[in-house]
Design a protein around this nucleic acid. Structure first.
Lengths: 218, 218
DNA sequence: ATACTGACCGACCGGACGGTCAGTTTGCGA
DNA sequence: TCGCAAACTGACCGTCCGGTCGGTCAGTAT
């Protein structure tokens, strides 16, 4: 859990610069922008504070660089999420499971971006959505639209809304994972794969024992 | 949206102290602990910085006081969430809708606590769970257990896991609300009541058009 | 009048903050 | 081997931070 989880190195980065980026990602994802000082980053990276300013104009620019490369990196990884074929149900289960693994495998980066997506300013939200979130939503939505075209998915459902259900379930699980062990009522959900499977069961088949094709009443 | 959203005033609080608490809740919920200075709070509350230290020993204690009263306050409000009777389906829909309204009606307080629940230390998580989150989970779980006892809810589902689905959906919606307008694919979900209804439709009846009672396969 | 209290304030403290700058080291092509 | 740019450093700057201190003032019980 120590070395390799960070953004790519597109241009030739000096070892020092890379150390700075690694330390910054680690610290910012844990404590947020305001909770990390340049001195701490420098110390953690094993370089002088001045050296950071040699590579980055300001704290904001460093943060920006991290966010951008993280976003770009995650965006590429999203490509691997929904590459499979098979039935609608199989594709949806595969996507949900892959997305869940994806979140935990790159937890640091995800947490970093999540903070900005949920509490950041509009400009950041737009950027992140355009480059990361949008891709995921679009891909997932496509699965649901295909499902409707195949006649397998209920035609009265909004595909975008279905996508929200899957993503919401996964993101909430990801965010809650650390504290789930303190809630005995849901402690059984600590296994990711098991949870993902159960979630798909519910979303696909519903909760009711006698499925009356769910008439919608106000 | 200006005056009354804050914790209760259990003991006789001076107008100054209440102003401090109000300002602190507003600022902390927006910018987090590290993003707010005592000077800003004092200015926003219309009192001197020293006055804050007359009422609270330190910044941490002020934050603590806010979190505790917010948690206690929300905990009381939860009582109103699931007071109804009726069928399982009706109770679940009512809870989901009430919880959703609850989140948005007290957005500031919710955001304040959410930050600590998701990214705070273990001690804070335990406290918040014991006093707020636990209640909600337990209440919701009870609904599902009743549903199983009535034979309406599928017996192979874990009630705690079902609760996670409802809560996850609502919390994710709440957190994403600000940025949903930027994602055209889900822009149709901007209406809370409509979303809540659609979510309940999916969770209750499932997504598939031919419900085969969802055999679970690995 | 006296003594005491809680609410409140302006001035101030040491230290940490983001950021700058003059200068040294290092890697590398000519 | 020289030269030069890039990498890197330590000392330093002004500002803001959380927190303290001495003191004012209205109210109030004696």
């Amino acid at each position: 859990m120590s070395s390799s989880q960070s953004a790519p190195a597109p241009a030739g980065r000096s070892s020092g610069e890379q150390a700075i980026l690694d330390a910054a990602v680690r610290l910012f994802s844990k404590h947020g922008f305001d909770g990390v000082s340049m001195r701490t980053i420098a110390q953690e990276a094993g370089v002088s504070k001045s050296n950071i300013y040699h590579h980055f104009r300001s704290k904001e620019e460093l943060y920006l660089a991290i966010m951008q490369s993280s976003a770009a990196w995650l965006s590429e990884l999203v490509d691997t999420l929904a590459e499979g074929g098979g039935s609608f149900e199989h594709r949806l289960r595969a996507f949900a499971r892959a997305h869940m693994e994806h979140l935990f495998a790159h937890a640091m980066t995800v947490r970093l971006l999540l903070r900005e997506v949920f509490t950041g300013g509009e400009k950041w939200q737009r950027l992140l959505i355009d480059h990361v979130v949008g891709d995921i939503v679009r891909r997932l939505r496509a699965i649901f639209e295909n499902g409707q075209a195949e006649g397998v998915l209920r035609s009265d459902l909004d595909p975008g809304l279905c996508a929200m259900q899957i993503l919401g379930s996964n993101f909430f699980y990801f965010q809650s994972y650390g504290m789930m062990k303190f809630i005995p009522e849901v402690a059984s959900a600590r296994d990711r794969a098991q949870y993902s499977e159960a979630m798909a069961d519910i979303l696909l088949g519903g909760m009711l024992v006698a499925p009356a094709t769910a008439e919608r009443s106000s």
